[in-house]
Simulated scan of single mutants.
Amino acid sequence: MTIALHIVTRASRLLLLAGFCMLLLVHLSVLLLLRLGTDSLMLIGIVFACSFFSTFYLSFKYWQYIQQSQQLSISATGEMILCLESQKEEQLTGLSVHLSHKSRIWPYFLSLFLVDELGKEHKLLILPDSLSPAAFRSLRVSLIWISQHG
Rank of each mutant, 00 (worst) to 15 (best):
L99V: 00
L33D: 13
S147V: 00
M80C: 08
L28C: 08
I66P: 11
F109T: 09
L110A: 07
H101P: 15
M42T: 02
L17F: 02
T93V: 15
L112Y: 04
T9V: 01
L32W: 10
I7D: 11
E121S: 10
L127Q: 07
D129V: 07
C21P: 13
D39L: 09
T55R: 11
I105L: 01
H149L: 05
L15S: 11
G94K: 05
S54L: 06
L43K: 09
I44T: 14
H98S: 00
P133L: 14
S73K: 07
L131W: 04
L23K: 14
L25N: 08
E117S: 12
T93D: 04
R137P: 05
G78Q: 00
C21L: 13
S147P: 07
M22V: 15
C83N: 03
L25W: 14
S73I: 03
A135Y: 04
E121N: 04
S12T: 05
S132P: 13
P133E: 08
P107N: 07
F52T: 10
I126F: 03
V115D: 05
F56L: 13
S59V: 06
I7K: 10
S54F: 15
V47F: 11
R13Q: 09
S132E: 03
L32K: 12
S59N: 15
L24E: 08
L15Q: 14
L33A: 13
A4D: 15
L28W: 09
S130D: 12
M42Y: 14
L17H: 08
L112T: 00
L99W: 02
S29G: 03
I46N: 12
S147E: 00
P107H: 05
M1P: 12
F56V: 15
S132G: 12
I126V: 05
Q91M: 05
Q91I: 01
T38R: 02
K120N: 08
R13G: 15
M80D: 05
D116H: 00
E90L: 12
A134V: 04
A134W: 02
G45L: 05
V26Y: 15
E89D: 04
H101T: 02
L99T: 00
L131V: 03
M42V: 04
L36R: 08
K102I: 02
K88G: 07
S142N: 00
S75F: 01
T55N: 08
P133C: 11
I44W: 12
H101W: 08
G45T: 11
I126K: 11
L17Y: 01
W145H: 02
T9E: 07
A76F: 04
R10G: 10
Y65F: 12
H149I: 03
L31C: 13
Q64Y: 11
